[in-house]
């Protein structure tokens, strides 16, 4: 069970360490069900930390997002560790970043938070509209306890669980330096209903589905920016030479953008669902990514973000990889 006291103590100890730059955790937001990241440098900030069903965001994104500022001449680069609170899915992002050398093991301190599944913010905001003051939410037995301004409300877990959590197989951090509390039992079985449903449709229907989605994309690139795996200094899809996609917002460029992004995530997507969460147009981006996750798992027997020592999927092969599609 969530032990906030322990979290706070660990956080205090951690940021007091000489070799830690800061700790990234969650804090209550200023509005409704929203939380925001807390970049904690002082022990007294520990009281601001929370861990609750509201902690949807994957903070691992900040590990690679942090800008490496130019180091003044004569000064030493700051190589202190960053401490990071992770849920199960977030920890896989850290592992995958380690696999592809996005971060170094000694530069990160992972604080593991076994997780019972977070809220679907859209659903909860729909159910309890117009709430402006910050709301505290807790896990109960198979339910969420939502402490609204006019008293607590209990809602069955299934009703408000985020889509990515419905079938989660890794609620516990797969890697951590400190595990804050007891691990929970995984409930997912790795089947993807959304993917299956789409696969069963015919080609035309599938395209109609995606055409509709991609047409509504506004190419804000929020999906890319929130993704813990998209951290190239200079994204190929942004470049002018060669220019893979045009800036124009139309079905052609939008489709190519999403296909290219999905393909760059082959064997790398750890299913944290950030892309889908941040999409202002509500594109079911995980339904796209999950398809490849599934193929990679079923046909190539590979899952990313589990073993820091494993070879990256995209830079390896097996002599007996499937080839029944080859003429």
């Amino acid at each position: 069970m969530v032990d906030l006291e322990k979290l706070k103590n660990v956080a205090k100890d951690t940021v007091s360490r000489e070799d830690v730059k800061y700790l990234i955790g969650w804090r209550q937001g200023t509005y409704g069900f929203r939380v925001s990241p807390l970049f904690m440098t002082e022990p007294e900030d520990a009281d601001k930390l929370i861990f609750s069903p509201l902690c949807v965001n994957n903070l691992a994104t900040y590990l690679t997002l942090a800008e490496k500022l130019p180091v003044p001449r004569g000064a030493e680069p700051d190589t202190r560790k960053v401490a990071l609170m992770v849920k199960g899915c977030d920890s896989r992002a850290v592992v995958q970043q380690l696999i592809e050398k996005g971060i170094e093991r000694e530069s990160v301190l992972v604080i593991g938070c076994p997780c019972q599944g977070v809220l679907d913010l859209e659903k909860v905001e729909e159910k309890f509209p117009g709430i402006h003051s910050p709301v505290d939410v807790q896990w109960g037995d198979d339910k969420f306890i939502i402490n609204l301004p006019d008293g607590p409300q209990e809602v069955p877990r299934e009703e408000l669980l985020a889509k990515k959590c419905l079938n989660c197989r890794y609620p516990n951090p797969v890697m951590s330096d400190v595990m804050l509390w007891e691990e929970v039992e995984a409930w997912g079985n790795g089947e993807y209903a959304d993917v299956k449903e789409l696969e069963e449709k015919d080609s035309q229907a599938r395209w109609s589905f995606w055409q509709d989605k991609f047409e509504s994309c506004i190419r804000c690139y929020a999906c890319r920016n929130a993704c813990p795996m998209c951290y190239c200094e200079d994204c190929v899809l942004d470049r002018l030479n060669p220019q893979w996609i045009y800036r124009s917002n139309n079905i052609s460029e939008n489709t190519v953008f999403h296909l290219a992004r999905a393909f760059h995530l082959v064997g790398r997507c750890i299913e944290c669902g950030e892309c889908e969460r941040v999409c202002p147009m509500g594109l079911p981006l995980m339904t796209l990514n999950r398809k490849l996750v599934k193929e990679v798992r079923d046909k190539y027997d590979f899952e990313p973000g589990l073993d820091p020592e494993s070879k990256p999927f995209q830079s390896s092969y097996r002599p007996d990889d499937q080839e029944d599609f080859i003429l």
Partner: peptide, 21 residues
């Protein structure tokens, strides 16, 4: 071998979004 792995998945992806395989 790398090509085989990449394009096996590319074929799946294209088919999935409704491009005729």
């Amino acid at each position: 071998f790398y090509a085989r792995r990449r394009f096996g998945l590319m074929k799946e992806l294209l088919e999935y979004v409704g491009v005729d395989p």
